[in-house]
């Protein structure tokens, strides 16, 4: 057994992770990719553990991915659609957390519309908490699955030129990716209209472009983000058609990137708004389907590592 390389009780964000911990998750995820491609996909890594998915915000893809990941590892998985339940009856987040905690879950997967809400919840429960997206703050498993996709497509996860394009301001995916890819020593460009790209991100070492053609020159990876209409409380762009003209990824703009550049999108896509449908479907360039596949593997890896730490802490009387 190798020395402990992932020393975290929770996965609340990319920010607290050290580069070798990121690598540990990705390495284990690579193994789970192999498992997932077999006909018999079962492992007992989480056998006997209870996983509760608490989604305070709509999600189909992420929730399904976490559910499948848990089931393949043998956990007892329960989904709770929180918008429909007690929150509507006026229960506070902390009361909900305490109630669930009393049911002795081992893994809690939480999505919440407010930044920091998952951190708050993690302080009140005694199990491992995974952030499945909190407000505009972080979405760590998305960044990890993106990293795995890049590493497998490019053969490495360092010294790449990576463009993150679109609605950065409202995107937790962008924040987590910026932090992760920065930690792994890549050059990051943020591309989008200035109303959607906070200029403060230049202080984290990212280069900011408001001209997409300029920004895409010679990049290895193009990450497109969804225009988050539901998070916008005013006019950030004049219209979707002008947005697509200036910031939508089409063949002409993609031609400015490196010839072998890959195209990514966390989904769900707005075709014709941020990405041209033919690019999204171009199997030579688009790795969007791989991202979904990697998502399950990365979540299996993260939950496996957290469960090991949880078991060690409980048996050792440590944390």
């Amino acid at each position: 057994m190798q020395p402990p390389s992932f020393d975290q009780p929770h996965l609340l964000g990319i920010e607290p992770l050290r580069p070798h911990e990121i690598t540990a998750i990705l390495d284990l995820a690579d193994d789970y990719v192999v498992l997932n491609r077999q006909t018999e996909k079962h492992s007992d890594a989480l056998s006997g553990l209870t996983q509760i998915n608490m989604f305070f915000e709509n999600s189909t893809r992420t929730q399904a991915s976490f559910e499948l990941a848990g089931k393949r590892l043998g956990a007892d998985v329960m989904n709770m659609a929180m918008q429909a339940s007690s929150i509507k009856k006026g229960e506070t987040l902390i009361d909900t957390a305490m109630t669930l905690n009393a049911m002795h879950p081992d893994l809690l997967v939480v999505r919440h519309p407010h930044s920091g809400a998952v951190d708050l919840l993690a302080q009140k429960v005694n199990c491992a908490v995974l952030n499945a997206g909190d407000g505009r703050h972080e979405h760590p498993t998305q960044a990890l699955l993106d990293a795995l996709t890049i590493r497998r497509a490019k053969g490495r996860l360092h010294r790449l030129n990576i463009a993150i394009c679109g609605d950065i301001a409202h995107s937790r995916v962008a924040r987590s990716n910026l932090i992760l890819l920065g930690k792994m020593e890549n050059r990051i460009r943020l591309i989008g209209p200035p109303t959607l790209v906070p200029q403060q991100f230049s202080e984290f070492g990212a280069e900011i472009y408001d001209d997409m053609r300029e920004g895409l020159k010679d990049v290895d990876v193009v990450m497109m983000l969804r225009l988050q209409k539901e998070r916008m409380d005013g006019g950030f762009i004049p219209s979707e058609r002008e947005y697509f003209y200036r910031y939508g990824l089409d063949a002409e703009k993609l031609a400015l990137a490196k010839p072998d550049a890959i195209v990514m999108h966390p989904g769900p896509m707005n075709r014709g708004v941020e990405i041209d449908g033919t690019i999204a479907d171009d199997i030579k360039r688009s790795v969007i389907q791989e991202q979904v596949e990697m998502g399950v593997a990365v979540r299996m890896a993260a939950m496996d590592l957290l469960a090991r730490n949880l078991r060690a802490a409980r048996s050792g009387g440590g944390r």
């Binding site: 920010e15 909190d134 703050h137 906070p198």
Partner: peptide
């Protein structure tokens, strides 16, 4: 920088 990082 801080608010941007925290997503507030």
């Amino acid at each position: 920088k801080f608010a941007a990082l925290r997503g507030l």
